[in-house]
Amino acid sequence: MAQGVLALAEQFEGRFRNVAYEVLSEGKRLADALGEPLAGVVLGSGIEAMAAELGKYGADKILAADDPALADYTTDAYTNVLFDIVKDHDPKILLLGASTRGKDLSARLSARLDTGLAMDCLALRVDGDTLIATRPMFGGKVLAEIAIQGTPQMAAIRPNVMEVVEAEKGAGVEKVPVNVGVAKTKALEKKTEAAAKVDLTEANIIVSGGRGMGSPDFSLLEKLAEVLGGTVGASRSAVDEGWRPHSDQVGQTGKVVSPNLYIACGISGAIQHLAGMGTSKYIVGINKDPEAPIFKKADYGIVEDLFKVVPALTADVKKLRE
């Protein structure tokens, strides 16, 4: 009979992603609610040593699928290996992170296992034996409560939302057999963006620019983001103008983000943009137009020319940091 929680800790090039700790911590909370154990699992190449770290987050057991064939993420190999692990360990709940790879993997795996999966979850709870997820739909305009059925009940959690809690267990790492099966896909080449930019979905602070920027010159925002330790985003208008790459777009047809601090500069606040950043903990709006819809959502608003306010903000934050 299915038992416990299995949590996939996503690593990339030998480092756990933040969402890995969030998945483990949430897994621990659910395992405690069920009164059942938590197992952490890591897939990759040369990851056996790093896997031990998962004991810090309450894993009773740590599984490592360590094989050169898992060095780069490919859908087939990762799905096949995780499928075997699930069949062997028969967890009641399987948790993953809803990163770009996590979404790809969890979707394929849920079909292979023919089991229910809730994607991009903001909150999870167990009601008796049923896992219930709260997840956004319509780009965040609506929240849905979803009851998940099947074995295991699968949920992929949105990065940057759930709390990381340490709970030392000191569990040992157990290597699991790896059979990557027939690979129909092959990873050839990785291209990373300049200065290994933090992805918007994982950023703690986002400084976003919209039509009010007036040109592709986002250097003022880059500077503010730099002193804040944040990342630059953009509205759909700014992306459609060709001022910023598509990977920077925040909103219903771009990335849905939930940083601690979202600073919207020259963004009026179209409904599809507000939906995409509405779960940010704090929102700041800077816009010349006092009627801009962004001010209805912003915790703090400044009605002013962004080209005057942003440099002053950068200077003030810089002073704080010194």
């Binding site: 990339f12 992603r17 490919t74 990163s99 770009t100 092959k186 990873a187």
Partner: peptide
Amino acid sequence: IEGGTMVV
């Protein structure tokens, strides 16, 4: 992918 692209 996060922070870049990959050729598959």
